[in-house]
């Protein structure tokens, strides 16, 4: 669903979820474009030596998922002003990540509406993987 009219927006609106599984096929593609090959993203022994149960996703990929969530909801007319995220626990390989967002504030200006959004990523066990906030702008 793409927002067509800022007048339809309400505080509490949920953004359509963005869901991805932590697969080698996906992470390899991202590693290739971001030149990101730290062994803890694919080597179980390295991940364990660093204190983790399994290899885990790249933080920039998780940030990309937040950006993608916002873009899918806003459509091409919207623009992302800011996006912050804290990574609370790793997104482990073979887990499924569910990325969600909720409108928390609306600021209606002359030509644009500024929208504050609360963001979250949770894994298969519903454990919080990342939390964040974003501000986006949509033309009125």
């Amino acid at each position: 669903m793409v927002i067509r009219n800022t007048q339809d927006l309400n505080i509490g609106d949920e953004l359509p979820t963005f869901i991805r599984k932590g697969t080698v096929e996906h992470w390899n593609r991202f590693a290739a474009v971001n030149d990101e090959f730290a062994p803890h993203h694919w080597d179980y022994d390295v991940a364990k030596n660093e204190g983790f149960d399994a290899p885990f996703a790249m933080a920039p990929l998780q940030m990309s998922f937040f950006n993608a969530l916002l873009r899918t909801w806003m459509g091409e007319q919207g623009r992302i002003i800011s996006l912050s995220a804290k990574l609370k626990s790793p997104f482990f390989k073979e887990q499924t990540l569910v990325v969600t967002g909720r409108v928390t504030e609306l600021q209606i200006l002359e030509t644009e509406t500024y929208i504050d959004i609360e963001l979250m990523q949770a894994d298969t066990d519903n454990k919080t993987v990342a939390i964040g906030t974003a501000q986006v702008a949509l033309a009125n």
Binding site: H40, N49, E50, G51, A59, P60, M63, R79, I80, I81, S82, L83, S84, A85, K86, L87
Partner: peptide, 15 residues
């Protein structure tokens, strides 16, 4: 150190 991890990212974008 034995590990380096990214824990938080704050982005501000222009138009």
């Amino acid at each position: 150190y034995k590990a380096i991890l990214l824990s938080e990212i704050r982005e501000n974008y222009s138009d």
